[in-house]
């Protein structure tokens, strides 16, 4: 019983609202892709995807309710990937 108290119960309503936000962002990114934003196209698409991804990780994957340690662990992995990406590109930029 006590274990149950520790767990967070996300309401059906909250889950529904999160889906609506995610769908809105999806249609927004499809809509904005119709315009020629030149160099910004990639930036906008990746930004919207990152926001959507964060919403999924924080809410659907319940990271919001996990311990601080788990949160930093997940954040650390994404930072690690960003570092790998940047270091790889240093190689290609200054070749």
């Amino acid at each position: 019983m006590e274990e149950h108290d520790k767990q967070h119960v996300t309401s059906y309503y909250t889950n529904g609202v999160i889906l609506v936000v995610l769908l809105f962002l999806t249609f927004f990114s499809v809509f904005i892709a119709e315009f020629d934003l030149k160099a910004l196209t990639l930036f906008v698409a990746i930004s919207v995807a990152t926001v959507k991804g964060s919403i999924v990780v924080m809410n659907f994957m319940h990271l919001r309710y996990e311990k601080k340690f788990t949160k930093y662990m997940v954040l650390g992995v994404f930072v690690l990937f960003a570092i790998v990406l940047i270091i790889t590109f240093f190689d290609y930029w200054f070749r």
Binding site: H4, L23, T26, V30
Partner: peptide, 27 residues
Amino acid sequence: TFVGTLNTVVLLISSMTVAMSITAVQK
């Protein structure tokens, strides 16, 4: 793009139904 968008919508809805099934079991 249409097929891609459709599949995105389908996967997002399926994510919500899984999240809701956890709520249902908890209740």
